[in-house]
Design a protein around this nucleic acid. Structure first.
Length: 498
RNA sequence: GGCGGAAUGGCCGAGUGGUUUAGGCAAGGGCCUGCAAAGCCCUGUACGCGGGUUCGAUUCCCGCUUCCGCCUCCA
């Protein structure tokens, strides 16, 4: 079974055949670093992180380029409003994006080029376009001549004659046609500028992606990804520039659906409510990742607190199974292995049942291979990255694993646990893998474990003499301290309340 | 005005020309438990509206309604 992907350019699901067998070049439109990321931004990161993990697990060597747009109107406006340097605003927000990608477990790109670092490449591309008759300098700006490129509109299905004229103010007078778009914006007082053969100025929005994708991935590359709201004008314009210049450009276009709030796309004001930094104080990052990743990447997500809570519950069900499975596989009796059982401890205990040929660090190296995964899971992801169906397979394995666990079937439990972890690794959700695992001071954990054990021993003694009020009081006190106690056939186990 | 997407059981969310019609959450019943918790089993019989094609439509076609995205700030 081969991977099939929905290609926006053809509006159909197509077999994915990379340009060079065995390797994939992928460009993702990353952040315009004009504000900190909200969950809409990061959903895109998560969606394509899963795509990249799947490509790698499928045996492709993926070269992943994710750009940063570090100059635009809004960055300049913010800088001016705050009395700060534009580059300081960009830098600050770029760091916030980097934090968000990291905290949600998105694998880093192989290269993360910034627009302002690639002006020479932009100049070359502009020259090529001007010489080919597809662009013209005017009034200090450089414009792409839409009428010179008959294919314009093909990606987004727009007909130029039906497009509304741009109502932007600044430079309309210089354009030959209102639909022409700026490759380069002429210098204005108070704005940063770079020298070009056509005068000083700054990059237009679209030019950078053509210049940088070509530089790092080649004139023709496999996949161009980004949010659905970038199809027009951004990606349309990129495509026009690059094709008009004679480059093949992207062979597949992937677009993720948007996150909405209150029935509408997240705006600046509503987005502030859903900043990643804020969300991860309300749910654990891995739970937020589960929420953002669980829907199909092309579906819109209507944010709701209730839906987020459901995702949390679903993830904890999976995680709970893995923790109990690790305890069983590890120390024979749950009480011995439990408690101290942060996932990292459990990880060690599970080592006997680890993934085939994998250390599972969450880094690109250790992903399970597609062949080692359940066939239904593989088939789901091969079908345009069908994460919802893939998660159904995960949940079925969890249920079977829980049944084995209840029966004391260690081998069966370990088998299901290994399968679940392998599948979760592809989705970036393995609780025992980086960046979710670990944390905490091992020494402190041992101390806490010993203290809890004292309390549990007293509770067991109370239970043995059928003094249930005393036993329940101990359990209640532990609960109040944030420790959940469960009795199992093999004795009590505890863990920190999640 | 143009282009595109969507409407599924209490909720989230897949999917399919029919017979076993995902999965999760919540709910009810049961098992287990001293009680819980966790887990397992069972239950609910859903596809916006109106036509059409068909032996049969939630799935295909036409029309309609509502919602959403884009039409040069956007993930």
């Amino acid at each position: 079974m081969t991977l099939r992907l929905y290609d926006t350019a053809t509006r159909s699901v197509r077999d994915f055949v990379p340009q060079t067998p065995g390797s994939v070049t992928l460009y993702l439109c990353g952040a315009t670093v004009q504000s900190p990321p909200h969950i809409g931004h990061i959903r895109s990161g998560v969606s394509f992180d899963i795509a990249i993990r799947w490509l790698r697990a499928s045996g492709y060597a993926v070269t992943f380029c994710r750009n940063v747009t570090d100059i635009d109107d809004k960055i300049l406006r913010t800088a001016s409003a705050e009395g700060a340097q534009w580059w300081a605003i960009a830098e600050r927000n770029q760091r916030a994006f980097a934090r968000a990608y990291d905290v949600l477990g998105c694998l880093p790109p192989d290269v993360e080029p910034r627009a302002t670092g690639h002006v020479p490449e932009m100049i070359v591309l502009m020259r090529r376009l001007i010489e080919a008759g597809h662009a013209y300098p005017a009034g200090g700006d450089v414009y792409f001549d839409v009428s010179s490129y008959p294919e314009y509109g093909a990606l987004s299905g727009q007909r130029p004659e039906h497009m509304r004229a741009a109502d932007d103010t600044d430079s309309d007078g210089a354009k030959r046609d209102p639909r022409d778009f700026a490759l380069w914006k002429g210098h204005k007082p108070g704005e940063p500028s770079w020298e070009t053969p056509w005068g000083p100025g700054r990059p237009g929005w679209h030019l950078e992606c053509s210049a940088m994708s070509t530089k790092y991935l080649g004139a023709t590359f496999d996949i161009h990804a980004g949010g659905l709201d970038l199809v027009f004008p951004h990606h349309e314009n990129e495509l026009a520039q690059s094709r008009a210049a004679g480059d093949g450009f992207a062979r597949y276009w992937l677009h993720n659906g948007l996150v909405r709030l209150g029935g509408e796309k997240m705006s600046k004001s509503t987005g502030n409510l859903l900043l990643v930094d804020r969300m991860v104080t309300q749910v654990r990052p891995v739970e937020l990742r589960y929420y953002l990743g669980q829907a199909h990447y092309r579906s819109d997500i209507e944010f709701s607190a209730a839906a987020l809570e459901e995702a949390v519950a679903a993830y904890r069900r999976i995680e709970g199974f893995l923790i109990r499975a690790a305890e069983l596989a590890g120390a024979g009796s749950p009480s011995a292995g439990a408690g101290t059982a942060g996932p990292d401890v459990a990880d060690a205990e599970l080592s006997g049942a680890t993934l085939p040929g994998s250390e599972l660090p969450g880094a690109s190296a250790g992903l399970p291979t597609a062949g080692s995964l359940p066939a239904a899971f593989t088939a789901a992801l091969d079908d345009d990255l069908g994460v919802p169906q893939a998660l159904a397979v995960v949940h079925e394995a969890v249920r079977e694993g829980n049944t084995a666990l209840a029966a004391g079937d260690a081998a069966g439990t370990a088998k299901q646990a290994a399968a679940v972890r392998a599948m979760l690794a592809i989705l970036g959700l393995d609780p025992f893998a980086a960046p979710w695992a670990g944390g905490g001071d091992p020494g402190l954990r041992d101390v806490v474990g010993a203290l809890v054990q004292v309390a549990l021993d007293q509770r067991q003694a109370a239970r043995a003499r059928k003094d249930y009020p005393a036993a329940d009081a101990i359990r209640d006190e532990l609960a109040a301290a944030g420790i959940a106690v469960e009795d199992t056939p093999a004795g009590p186990r505890w863990e920190l309340q999640r």
